[in-house]
């Protein structure tokens, strides 16, 4: 409402009304351009997210358990953590070419260290008493990991997933803008050339809806399920 009123008064091509943006969104959706670009971007987000979460979790877990691994990799993680996203993207494109793998690797590498750091903290906070209990009842490695370790890491994994999703989709747009010829990032770049703020907002909002939907449909129910034992 506020947006609509403000836009009416501003009456500028650079600040379109909410209704105009909504209309554009529908038009783009009907033409198929919005949906296909959204799907491409989403696929890249999913790929980078999976790689970053799986590798980051494994790395963080190893660092949390073995002091040697931690000592060997700690400074590398810090370097990676502080390397600007843009530098990583450019380096990946330069070294591996302007292809899909380089794009996904660049995004995943941006997220991986922070996942590793969070999971490392979670691993260090594991309750040794419970691990010992599992050992004394001979639960075995797989069952111990599944039922004793993983539930204790769950809050850390959720934190990593939440912040990960947010960071990854932002970086995916940059990657698309710099070196891909499709996806939401590419579209935004194209409309930026044309100073078409209506289209830029339409694409951005569409993606925000998607991310919000992931949160509601996937993350929140899952989190409720795994934390239902908490008082």
């Amino acid at each position: 409402m506020v947006w609509e009123l403000a836009a009416t008064f501003a009456h500028s091509r650079l600040f379109p009304a909410a209704s105009a943006v909504a209309l554009t969104m529908i038009q783009e959706a009907v033409s198929g351009s919005l949906l296909s670009n959204l799907a491409i971007t989403l696929a890249r987000v999913a790929a980078a997210f999976t790689v970053a979460m799986v590798l980051g979790t494994a790395l963080g877990f190893a660092m949390g358990i073995w002091r040697r691994v931690d000592l060997a990799l700690d400074s590398w993680v810090t370097v990676l953590l502080n390397l600007p996203a843009l530098v990583l993207i450019v380096l990946m494109y330069v070294w591996f070419g302007l292809n899909e793998w380089a794009a996904i690797a660049a995004v995943a590498l941006n997220k991986l260290p922070s996942t590793a750091v969070m999971v490392r903290e979670g691993t260090r906070a594991l309750d040794r008493n419970l691990v010992e209990m599992a050992q004394s009842f001979r639960l075995g490695r797989v069952k111990t990991f599944r039922h004793v370790t993983l539930p204790q890491l769950a809050p850390y994994l959720f934190a990593a997933a939440r912040s990960g999703l947010a960071i990854i989709w932002k970086i995916v747009l940059v990657v698309e803008l710099l070196g891909r010829s499709n996806g939401v990032g590419f579209q935004i770049e194209a409309y930026f050339q044309l100073f078409d703020v209506t289209h830029i907002l339409a694409y951005t909002l569409a993606f925000i809806f998607v991310v919000q939907a992931i949160e509601w449909v996937f993350l929140q129910p899952l989190e409720r399920r795994v934390s239902r034992w908490r008082r």
């Binding site: 419970l130 010992e132 209990m133 004394s136 639960l139 039922h147 795994v226 034992w229």
Partner: peptide, 24 residues
């Protein structure tokens, strides 16, 4: 088969009482 009763109960907080027993 060794059944241990630890000084603290050491039950898994995310499993119900029965699930704790069934797990082991």
């Amino acid at each position: 088969r060794i059944g241990t009763v630890f000084q603290e109960p050491r039950l898994l907080p995310w499993r119900t009482v029965r699930e704790n027993l069934l797990l082991v």
